[in-house]
Simulated assay, not measured.
Amino acid sequence: MIMTFHFSKRVPADGTDAVGAILKAAADPKVISFAGGLPAPELFPVEGMKKATDKVYEEHGREALQYGAAAGVTELRQLILKRVAEKEGVHANLENVMVTTGSEQAIDLVGKAFVNPGDTVLVEDPTYLCALDVFRSYGAKFVGVPMDEDGMRMDALEDALKAHPEAKLVYTVPNFQNPTGRTMPADRRKKFAELAAKYDVPVLEDNPYGDIRFAGQHVPSVKSFDKTGHVFYMSTFSKILAPGFRLGWLVADPEVVKKLTVLKQSADLHTDNLVQYVVAEFFKENDVDAHVKEISALYGKRKQLMVEGLQKYFPKSVKYTNPEGGMFLWVTVPGVDDTVALFKECLKHNVAFVPGDPFFAGKPQPGTFRLNYSNMAEDKIQVGLKQLGAALDEALNK
């Protein structure tokens, strides 16, 4: 008898992976793909990491290769605390910070700790699609909070909190948001922290892109305005060092960190010890801020080329965001009802993007899609946008 598999409700019922299928199609070498969210590999600090790794083996080899604490290597946690204090105005203690296997694990652990089947989670609309996938796997019901060009609207958030007092969590990406590239101003962040306290709801502030700023001024984190412990702040080394390290972290109330650490132990015991030691050593021996400036300069150049291409090749009715940092911008094409069908048409022109549909908690906004500029050579940006513009003209004039 052939085995019948009875999967849990966490597995998508139809067994499909729409985004995976899109990215697979976009991986065709003939296709100029703006679909991924990959950092530029030419800026990975390979030589510096090799030196740091050698030194770790010499000085901490046995500890690095042994089992470790679920909360993370102490030296790295201290480095994170110093960095968030200097960069984000978040002042905490060792008991407030834990290391995770990529920031994706931080989202998963928070979902596991706070979301029961049927619970309400408030999110920006649109928002990071993998966060939706994680919370959905724990049975969350979503309420999308409207955005404008300055990110999540605080009046809309308060309306949502009043209408849904049962909400268990609010998830936000306030810096160079994925997928829109928008950044929330300081006054909204202050109000955000106040609303979290007023309505007694935890906020997961996800900041993977905040260091990659190439225009405008730094904005303090939502967590920096938090006086009550309602805001959990998370970030990653993926965008400034190497995504393959799978190294993220979370700063939160000690009670929350303690619970999440227990959950992490049952998931993977602890994050890779060697990688933690290597990153701590790399920070000692290198000017990481100078490295981040180099990344920011390259992404800023590529974003500007993309904006110029949009202006030159896209129909005049098309709208798009113009981010001050990060890796993405968001396009809206009036008159297009089915962006997935548009994606398939664009593939015929050998150019790809990520359709907007999977980024929405509820009903998708027609004609939206995300473009990535961080991982595309400058000469291909113009060529790709010319091809994409031709595909849009063709779709709109059918």
Rank of each mutant, 00 (worst) to 15 (best):
G20R: 05
I22M: 11
L23R: 05
K24L: 15
K24V: 03
A25L: 13
A25R: 15
A25H: 08
A26H: 05
A26W: 04
A27W: 07
D28G: 08
D28A: 04
P29Y: 07
K30H: 10
K30A: 12
V31T: 10
I32C: 02
I32Y: 00
F34D: 06
F34R: 01
F34P: 07
G36I: 07
G37V: 09
G37E: 09
G37M: 12
L38H: 08
L38V: 00
L38S: 13
E42C: 04
L43Q: 09
F44P: 02
F44R: 14
F44V: 10
P45T: 10
P45K: 08
M49I: 15
M49H: 03
K51P: 07
K51S: 14
A52K: 04
T53K: 12
D54N: 06
D54L: 13
V56R: 11
V56A: 09
Y57W: 13
Y57D: 13
Y57C: 10
E59S: 08
H60T: 05
H60I: 04
G61D: 10
G61I: 07
R62K: 13
R62T: 15
R62E: 15
E63D: 14
E63H: 02
A64S: 14
A64E: 02
A64C: 03
A64I: 00
L65E: 11
L65N: 13
Q66N: 15
Q66I: 01
Q66Y: 09
Y67L: 11
Y67A: 13
G68D: 05
G68F: 06
G68R: 00
A69D: 15
A71R: 15
A71I: 10
A71K: 14
V73F: 13
V73W: 15
T74A: 14
E75P: 04
R77C: 05
Q78H: 15
L79A: 03
I80M: 03
I80D: 02
L81C: 05
K82M: 06
K82Y: 06
K82E: 14
V84E: 01
V84N: 03
V84T: 09
A85Y: 03
A85E: 09
A85L: 03
K87Q: 05
K87V: 10
E88T: 03
G89Y: 06
V90W: 04
A92C: 14
N93M: 06
L94S: 06
L94M: 03
E95G: 12
E95F: 11
N96M: 00
N96F: 00
V97E: 04
M98P: 09
M98N: 08
M98G: 10
V99C: 07
V99T: 12
T100K: 12
T100D: 11
G102C: 08
G102Y: 02
S103G: 12
E104M: 11
Q105M: 14
A106E: 12
I107L: 14
D108I: 00
L109A: 09
L109E: 01
G111R: 06
G111A: 05
K112F: 09
K112A: 14
K112I: 06
A113K: 03
A113I: 03
A113C: 13
F114N: 03
N116M: 08
P117H: 04
P117E: 05
G118R: 00
G118F: 00
G118V: 07
D119W: 09
D119L: 10
T120I: 14
L122G: 02
V123N: 11
V123K: 07
V123P: 00
E124P: 02
E124L: 00
E124R: 01
D125W: 01
D125R: 04
P126H: 03
T127Q: 01
T127K: 01
T127N: 02
